[in-house]
Design a protein around this nucleic acid. Structure first.
Lengths: 335, 335
DNA sequence: CCCGATTGTCGAAGCGCTTCGACGGAGCCT
DNA sequence: AGGCTCCGTCGAAGCGCTTCGACAATCGGG
């Protein structure tokens, strides 16, 4: 492995000149620069990351903390991850992957060891114990999610309240008045994952605002959970004509159960789902859905991290507006 | 941030002694060790990763290269990833995540910069251009998959040929003689992903060996692809009584299409799928399946990487035996 | 035409850690 | 008792890079 001094010798300049060619922090003449670059290419020189980190206290690495296998859907997580990695690369950063099960200790480990310049944390809970820990680190961090008290840490997320509003508005636009929410499993609410509650609040608020008759139910995983939820919904809101489904796992069994009950989508029942595009289009009926913009959220998280590292001012909380994509699961209610 | 010399001063010893307490590379008396550890705890000292990497040429980081969004199923990828991260942590390593789209350059970048000690590469193709590049690195690597020529690099994967054999044997055990394979999309074969071909070879071989009548079809994504595949299959193999499905994306539309055709599972048609457990159990019928042991493969890949780093001898190619889990999608053929 | 600013380059001092050689002292063998 | 071998610890030399201060040379302005 050639070092910077090998390059310097080959180019007939000093080490510092090579360094300045690489970093651009001081002006270097075009000829010198060209000679250095030629030497770099010829020797196949790569700066040593550790040495660089030691000397500059910059690692060019971001930590990303992912949930391990919670109830949040795997494709969504994966989209976040690839978005973050891809965005990080455009800023010449790499991504160190941590799992949520390492908890606070994991954050302190990578931050304490100066392995990363900043941290991005997914799946933040309402009262997440990691938030105070994050505040104590010398590296900045960005949360994906919206805790009760972010303690000054920047947050990015989909605006779930507005999303619920849009879903209801869309259905109301089709003429529906009696609408039920099939929510996440109770475990999600209990765990304190905030998007569930924010969606529910938005749903309730929009329901009142739009003068709708609605009911909201969490939904245990599996066919039995879906069946139970559906039964209770029809019980509490007879003549329900549309469903808002905020639960990806429930989708397949839901279609199964609706078929068993002889309810066609969208002829007898309209559905708006909250899920990523590819899930919406892999169902028996292409679902009209509020896309979860995992890609945008991930990219934005990285951009905020970069702003923070460059000492730029940031906005605190960024909630992305929802987008409803119309597909084939909504129609006017049967009269 | 306290440094090792702060710790040394606080404990009244030299820097090297602190280092030896931490690494255990030289004997240190119990009292000294205790004093040093107390100082470390009190100061909240964390060794600086960069400095450590510079001095020891060991980063304690593994690179993991993941496919971005190929046809291979997302849940399986995620399982690999979490298995690798979790296993790496048990060996006190972290994981740097790279995406496949960075290609050879990405590998050379992280290896050249000495950011990682070893590399684990997923989604290896038959004649993957990255293999020669990996061979040139000074770090060892492990492939997940089985290329035509691994060029001496260690490989881990499920034994897909044996898996196909087991699937057929299972169905034959139920009395089926006319069996069709619903394979991955043609794109997967074309891309040269090796598991598809190995599964197909195993399928063909086992078919002959067991004296079955079989036909194999790739299957374009989406409902239309499934419909087409199914039509051709029934055409070419009239009276087919069982399906082996090696295509996770096809599963939902497949059930849909079978229903449309009035074919019940398993009464009219038995199915064995190749997919992770949770996919198998989230279908309308719980599927008898050959689990993809993503967790085991990922863990094993890390173990091999550790063996390589410790200079231990490794086996070259490790193919894990398949496991068929019986659920509710297989029955005797209707007589 | 001289002075101050700018441009382009160099030398050297670290950054925080590991590791090698050295060394005093204790324990063993003969 | 003398010579060995361990044991436990220290000092110092790097690992490869960035960055600060210095300095010669060039330039433009009053």
């Amino acid at each position: 492995m050639p070092t910077i001094s090998d390059v310097a010798r080959a180019a007939g300049v000093s080490m510092s000149t090579v360094s300045y060619v690489l970093s651009g922090r001081r002006p270097i003449s075009a000829e010198t620069s060209a000679r250095v670059k030629a030497a770099i290419a010829e020797l196949g020189y790569h700066p040593h990351a550790g040495a660089r980190a030691l000397a500059s206290s910059r690692t060019n690495v971001l930590a990303l903390v992912v949930p391990l296998r919670v109830d949040v859907s795997v494709p969504v997580i994966m989209q976040f991850v690839t978005a973050v990695v891809t965005a990080a690369r455009t800023y010449n950063h790499d991504v160190l992957l941590l799992t949520k099960d390492e908890g606070t200790a994991g954050l302190e480990r990578v931050a304490g060891a100066t392995m990363v310049d900043a941290l991005i944390v997914m799946d933040v809970e309402r009262d997440d114990v990691r938030i105070p820990a994050l505040g104590r680190l010398k590296q900045p961090s960005v949360l994906i999610g919206l805790p009760d008290d972010a303690a000054g840490i920047d947050c990015v997320d989909l605006d779930f309240a507005a999303t619920a509003h849009e879903c209801l508005a869309h259905l109301a636009g089709h003429g529906h008045r009696r609408i039920a929410l099939v929510g996440p499993s109770p475990a999600v609410y209990e765990r304190g994952t905030t998007y569930a509650g924010r969606f529910l609040d938005g749903f309730t608020g929009a329901s009142a605002e739009l003068g709708l008759e609605t009911v909201a139910h969490s939904c245990e995983p599996g066919a039995a959970g879906v069946r139970a939820a559906l039964t209770e919904i029809e019980d509490e809101l007879p003549g329900v004509t549309a469903l808002v489904v905020h639960n990806e796992e429930a989708l397949v069994p839901l279609f199964e159960e609706l078929r068993a009950r002889g309810r066609r989508v969208p002829e007898d029942l309209s559905i708006v789902a909250v899920c990523p595009r590819d899930v919406a289009t892999s169902m028996p009926v292409n679902l009209t859905s509020a896309d979860i913009p995992a890609h945008d959220v991930g990219t934005l998280a990285v951009e905020i991290a970069m702003d923070l590292l460059d000492g730029r001012r940031t906005e605190g909380v960024r909630l992305l507006p929802p987008t409803i994509v119309e597909r084939d699961s909504c129609a006017a209610p049967a009269s």
